[in-house]
């Protein structure tokens, strides 16, 4: 399960949002304006089971997320969900990988301390003996110009999603 974010973990001024997470329900998240730059030369890697529960994280993942490995493994991947990310992006991710295909996109992730980091993520289904047994996401450093495009695009998408609601 996923507990609410704790003000004691957050550095600096923050805003409060309540996310409605799939299969989990509401989660209170605390968000600052701080961006942490993507570390040069690294890949941030995680794996999940078919339900999106984290089964494996690499060192770079742990370092960037601000959580410990114990907090991450066993948690739903939406532990990193940032309120500025449109729902449609993740709906597209899940639809694509469940079809057995690769998904690629830019993602703004929320850290335990309320800061965020941008990644270029590629998610691949792990096919073993013809069956999907889980998913792997490999993130790399994004081109800044693409991040700027996504900031504008996602803001429009999130605004539209709020109106529909």
């Amino acid at each position: 399960m996923l507990s609410d974010m704790n003000p004691a973990d957050v550095t600096g001024d923050y805003r409060e949002y309540t996310l409605d997470l799939f299969g989990i329900g509401p989660r209170r998240v605390l968000v600052t304006d701080e961006e942490v730059p993507y570390p040069d030369g690294r890949l941030i890697v995680s794996r999940t089971d078919t339900e999106g529960i984290i089964t494996h994280v690499n060192r770079s993942f742990v370092a960037m997320s601000g959580y410990t490995e114990d907090e991450l493994v066993g948690a739903p991947h939406s532990i990193l969900r940032h309120p500025d990310m449109p729902r449609a992006a993740f709906a597209d991710l899940w639809r694509t990988v469940q079809r057995g295909e690769i998904w690629q996109g830019y993602v703004k992730n929320l850290r335990k301390d309320g800061a965020h980091y941008w990644v270029k993520a590629t998610v691949i289904p792990n096919v073993r003996r013809g069956r999907i047994v889980g998913y792997t996401s490999v993130r790399r450093k994004p081109e800044r110009r693409k991040v700027e495009e996504c900031i504008a695009l996602y803001a429009r998408m999130v605004a539209e999603e709020r109106e529909v609601k």
């Binding site: 890949l43 890697v45 794996r47 690769i102 690629q104 590629t122 998610v123 691949i124 792990n126 073993r128 792997t136 996401s137 490999v138 790399r140």
Partner: peptide, 15 residues
């Protein structure tokens, strides 16, 4: 090895 192959596949993927 399967894990490495998946990882390489994500790196060589281009839409």
């Amino acid at each position: 090895v399967e894990f490495m192959i998946d990882l390489m596949d994500t790196l060589s993927y281009s839409p």
